[in-house]
């Protein structure tokens, strides 16, 4: 549905998006994840045809976003970071207006408006002026606006930003509900959001793709084998030297456990090896009292930090692009 090849965008000297390629299949939810200034908004704006790319191509439903912009715009629903609302309009006149400029005919219009209002649960606010709505409702009107013309692709820039936890859950549910019929691209800097809503994640950092995979695979892939957490009683230095003898141990982190004599040891092993039994054997043989041993999987949060803070071979000066 969406094919992006070697897309780049430069603002003056700043490289906002640097040679990214990915594709999205029909019905999929793709999440852009990255710190502020990673190039999420710029990428989305290029997909919508709002910003022309400096290099590379992007195609939506087979149409080039730049060459055949009108065809693409008909098939895209877009919600920028702050929903583009006219405060003095009522919800349904606003949605009718958006429907009209998106090219709906008068006969389709009232049905589509009704349907989109129902989808985001704002049918009861139909005649309310937008300026009187709460933040969460405004966000929903923004969502309704993006789907009013029943587009193939829905692009949502930070759809849950500024909402309270309850509203966030509701909006996520809404997005989940939209999938299937629509292809969805959303961006966020909140990690749990992608693992909860997205089928696939693109981690962007400084305009480049740091990783692209399903949330589960990313977790697996970056786990780098296992991480083992051990609770033990003994001398820190002795524990360390004992553990260092175990083959495959990559990193050892020892901290005293609060309000007891025990130690908490975090052991990371190199790729794809389960060292739990070796570690247990080694510790017991060395005469330490072993209280607990468990395998820990890295959370997406840790992967994210690992990916985005990792030292990368810098090709260009770091950029702080406007998002």
């Amino acid at each position: 549905m969406i094919e992006v090849e070697h897309l780049s965008k430069t603002f003056g000297k700043a490289q906002a998006v640097d040679d990214i390629s990915f594709s999205v299949v029909r019905g999929e939810i793709l999440g852009f994840l990255g710190p502020n200034g990673a190039g999420k908004t710029t990428t989305m704006r290029m997909l919508t045809g709002y910003l022309p790319a400096t290099n590379g191509t992007a195609k939506v439903a087979g149409y080039d976003v730049f060459e055949q912009s009108m065809e693409v715009r008909k098939r895209i629903g877009y919600m920028p970071e702050s929903p583009p609302l006219y405060p003095e309009m009522s919800v349904h006149t606003y949605l009718e207006f958006v429907g009209r400029i998106k090219g709906l005919t008068s006969s389709e219009l009232s049905n589509r408006v009704k349907e989109s209002m129902q989808l985001v649960n704002i049918a009861d606010k139909r005649d309310e002026l937008i300026k009187r709505l709460s933040r969460g409702y405004k966000q929903r009107v923004g969502l309704a606006q993006a789907i009013v013309h029943n587009p193939d692709v829905v692009i949502l820039d930070e759809p849950t930003v500024g909402l309270d936890p309850k509203q966030i859950i509701e909006v996520r549910k809404l997005i989940k509900g939209l999938a299937g019929g629509h292809t969805i691209v959303l961006s966020t800097h909140i990690l749990p959001e992608v693992s909860m809503t997205c089928d696939r994640v693109v981690i962007l950092n400084k305009g480049r793709i740091a990783a692209i995979d399903t949330p589960e695979n990313l977790t697996l892939q970056l786990e780098g084998g296992e991480r083992v957490r051990v609770e033990i009683k003994g001398e820190a230095a002795a524990v360390r030297s004992a553990l260092e003898k175990v083959e495959g141990v990559h990193r050892i982190d020892i901290r005293p456990l609060e309000s007891s004599e025990r130690l908490v040891v975090n052991i990371e092993s190199t790729t794809g090896r389960d060292l739990r039994s070796q570690i247990a054997a080694c510790l017991v043989h060395s005469g330490f009292e072993l209280y607990e041993l468990q395998a820990v999987s890295l959370s997406l949060e840790e992967i994210f930090l690992q990916l985005t803070t990792e030292e990368q071979p810098e090709r260009r000066e770091p950029v702080a692009a406007g998002v």
């Binding site: 709002y50 715009r73 929903p83 400029i101 998106k102 090219g103």
Partner: peptide, 14 residues
């Protein structure tokens, strides 16, 4: 200011 120009300019109108 409202960001609605972005809506207009990403809609299928010239």
């Amino acid at each position: 200011k409202r960001g609605t120009l972005e809506l207009l300019m990403t809609s299928p109108i010239t």
